[in-house]
């Protein structure tokens, strides 16, 4: 790709990511602050790549317990029945609730994996200095950021179920260990997408 665009860095400017004020980059200064809003100014997010990687790996590891352990325990007539995410989806399919099954499947399985794998792909592409599909990668990142906030859906469902279905010994629902790991996965992927500096995508461009 041709060098069509002048970057802020090349122009000696820094963009405040909070109030979007353009400021002149100071030389040698270790810390820059926005003269208008006082936010820290970075040419690129500090240690962005390393932090993103760390968070990504964390979420990747936590994906396993989140999906393999039971996420909630349904107690029906005194009979405790722990369910993993997949088993929960199976339940909904068996009872004909295809839409709910689909939503939970996306929110709990597709989205977290998509997020982790997507950001990893972008990271790898930056490190390998691939120059293709730049726009698509940015688009993917935007999508990742957008759906990130919905991936807590599962945790919300459990929270609501625990509150609603509480008929004592007859039927009750309790969160199981995987809920914690799942929440950790969601948080760490959100943080990863946050620490990632999109400007890096265009670095070599």
């Amino acid at each position: 790709m041709d060098k069509e665009h002048l970057t802020a860095r090349e122009a000696g400017l820094v963009n405040c990511l909070d109030c979007h004020l353009l400021a002149i980059k100071g030389d040698g200064a270790l810390q820059m602050r926005c003269p208008r809003c006082g936010a820290r100014l970075h040419l690129r997010k500090t240690n962005g790549m390393a932090r993103t990687w760390a968070l990504l790996i964390t979420s990747l590891i936590l994906l396993f317990p989140a999906n393999l352990l039971p996420i909630m325990t349904v107690t029906y007539l005194g009979e405790r029945e722990p369910n993993t995410i997949i088993e929960g989806i199976e339940h909904f399919i068996q009872s004909g609730e295809y839409l709910i099954a689909l939503i939970i499947f996306f929110a709990s399985i597709v989205v977290p994996i998509f997020k982790v794998v997507g950001i990893m792909l972008i990271m790898i592409s930056i490190q390998k200095r691939w120059q293709t599909w730049l726009k698509h990668r940015t688009l993917m990142f935007r999508v990742i950021k957008f759906i990130g906030r919905w991936s807590m859906l599962d945790i919300f469902v459990i929270a609501v179920m625990v509150a609603l279905v509480n008929l004592g010994t007859l039927t009750s629902i309790k969160p199981a260990p995987a809920a914690t790991y799942f929440a950790a996965v969601v948080i760490s992927t959100m943080l990863a997408s946050n620490t990632f500096d999109t400007r890096l995508i265009w670095e070599g461009a």
Partner: peptide, 14 residues
């Protein structure tokens, strides 16, 4: 970076 503590903890837990 201290951020690497996170994946290590996750690894330990898993």
């Amino acid at each position: 970076s201290p951020i690497w503590i996170l994946p290590i903890v996750a690894l330990l837990v898993a």
